[in-house]
Amino acid sequence: MNERFQQTVDAEIKIEPKDWMPEKYRKTLIRQIAQHAHSEVVGMLPEGNWITRAPNLRRKAILLAKVQDEAGHGLYLYSAAETLGIDRDSLINDLLAGKSKYSSIFNYPTQTWADIGAIGWLVDGAAIVNQVSLQRTSYGPYSRAMIRICKEESFHQRQGYEIMITLAKGSPAQKALAQDALNRWWWPSLMMFGPHDAESSHSSQNMAWKIKRHSNDEMRQKFVDMTVPQTEYLGLTLPDPLLNWNEERGHYDFGPMNWEEFNKVVAGYGPCNVERLAARNAAHDKGDWVREAATAYAEKKAKRLKTEAA
């Protein structure tokens, strides 16, 4: 069975929910897709923070639309995870109990409006590199969710970059805001791609199963290469004195990442980990009456229809 499964994967044929799959393939995908879904939903929080304080109505409406999209993306991904035989309630509970991880980037605070620009440009930009790669992931429902998400994601990055342009080409105070946001979001965005290939424990099996299509370092390099010219257009400086075009490699060289900080944040000790989980729990608890009311109403209606039909 394993052989036939690997042959199917190698032939670039999608694995679908009812196909036989190795138990480890199933478990790995549940973990990865769930983490991806949680990231979308928790990701609504840092940006949601600025909806009431957007500088004008247009920016507010756009930011609302972006945050709405993230909720939708979370839902596509939860649905994809459920096709692997896990229920929604368990997924949500694992997040709320702190048992499940989400992308480390969302444990950083949004301190100014410029952060919203930096997030759209850099964080969504990095996510796009990863998600474009995942469009060709071997598991059908995950692949289709990625295709749908990629279509919606590009407005997110443009929205952020537009904010950066406005600030960077604005007053000196605005430009300083933009530079400050870039300084704080650059390295965490690079670390979104995960540890170096050599230190990535899951990677080789995930590549063999074509869950993962490109390596962490490959995608990180791609992101750096495309972002440098974008930064130059803004007239801003990337906070990396070692950033340098390497003619021989045909890529930008860049400095080392602070893996100590990354591991701290992943382990739960980032600036906002506690706050994010508290916010999710509060939202879940405060929404309990809605779930209860909707369920009671649906059951009452179903009962009434049954007695009317009888």
Binding site: S79, E82, R148, A294, T295, Y297, A298, K301, A302
Partner: peptide, 11 residues
Amino acid sequence: VGSLHAADATM
């Protein structure tokens, strides 16, 4: 296009 959870058809 996909799936979702809801309490009833209207929702």
